[in-house]
Amino acid sequence: MTSMSMPRSMWTVDSRTIVYAAIGAALYGVLVGLFKIPVPGTTAVDARPAFALVPFFGFAFGPVVGLFTGLVGNMIGDQISGWGALTSYNWSIANGVVGLLAGLAPAYLGSMMSGSLGRRAAAGAVGGAIAVVIGFLVVFSDMIKDQMDFNAVLTTEYIPVVIGDLIVTIILVPVLVYAWEPVKERLGR
């Protein structure tokens, strides 16, 4: 007897998607406020190592998991810190869009995804970096929501957050891909 399994669509929402999404959001919510590493020469740039969870979960488990990890994880982190889940809802949406775009990496980084583990790790970093640069454009909605000045959003919000998150994405996402892929093989996933 032979068994056949249907290829799993990246938009499938099953028990696996739900559990990975919940774990990603819980980890991000817990860890995001813990580590903040100031970037020298800047006034408001912090690298947040836990942010790497968002592009990694998107890249490893698909856009739905990435979206949930970024969106809900950021809301939970904000709520735990006292900022309020909805006070900066557009930032949570931005985090969600980063996870979503990282999860779409297989669609625009096709050749890198099918290569060796090293190439897939590099694809994680490239996909994550693209997602960070595009996803955080959502924070310009502060110009409407809080009537902030364009230059203020650009220099105190967008550029600092993109620099900090690019640093952690480029360093940590490949490491996480390297660590996760063998475990994934061992689990038969």
């Binding site: 739900i18 559990v19 999404a21 919940a22 774990i23 959001a25 819980a26 919510g29 817990v30 949930f68 809900v72 994880g73 939970i76």
Partner: peptide, 10 residues
Amino acid sequence: YAIDLTWRFI
């Protein structure tokens, strides 16, 4: 359910 699980995992 995922939101419920998230709170429980924390």
